[in-house]
């Protein structure tokens, strides 16, 4: 039998002197199980496993960029538009994604496959433009590479 979310969280808790310290890993595990975002049900599960309130979990999740409190696409495409990427052509990369996907930055494709967003510095400024696809970093991305990346994400 595969472990439940509750079991997985209790396992992570063991790494820390205080259970509450496990809240980020716990929310991450819950988000993975709920299709990339955190519905109310996920907050209830995490709260129960860590012995905190769901409201507390919401307050933590809302603080961090990598947690989503609203539905997102099956894939997440994040383009860095901070200064080093911006002066190296990030805007053209964003526009290429917008054209290929038919959505603006901040939106999800109609079929629910891809959410596109712009993000702050991803820590790869010397390899601009940096694009994170489901947390895997593509480096030195140019507008011409975008079609290939989108194709790999499928329908």
């Amino acid at each position: 039998m595969s472990p439940t979310l509750h079991d997985e969280i209790r396992e992570v808790v063991k790494e820390y002197p205080e259970p509450r310290s496990a809240i980020i890993p716990a929310l991450r595990l819950a988000q993975e199980r709920h299709g990339g975002w955190l519905p109310d049900e996920a907050f209830r599960q995490v709260a129960e496993a860590l012995d905190v309130t769901p409201a507390y979990c919401v307050s933590i999740a809302s603080f961090y960029d990598m947690f989503h409190t609203e539905p997102v696409g099956r894939h997440l495409v994040e383009v860095c538009t901070n200064v080093s990427c911006a002066v190296s052509g990030a805007q053209r990369v964003v526009e290429a994604f917008e054209r290929e996907l038919g959505v603006h930055a901040g939106e999800t494709t109609e079929d629910g496959n891809v959410t596109l967003r712009t993000v702050e510095c991803l820590g790869g400024c010397g390899w601009a433009t940096v694009v994170a696809v489901d947390n895997r970093h593509h480096l030195r991305v140019q507008a011409g590479d975008v079609g290939g990346i989108v194709k790999e994400l499928g329908e």
């Binding site: 901070n82 200064v83 080093s84 702050e120 510095c121 820590g123 790869g124 400024c125 010397g126 390899w127």
Partner: peptide, 9 residues
């Protein structure tokens, strides 16, 4: 995460 910094990585 300081913009411009990617050394620790």
């Amino acid at each position: 995460s300081e913009p411009g910094t990617f050394k620790d990585r």
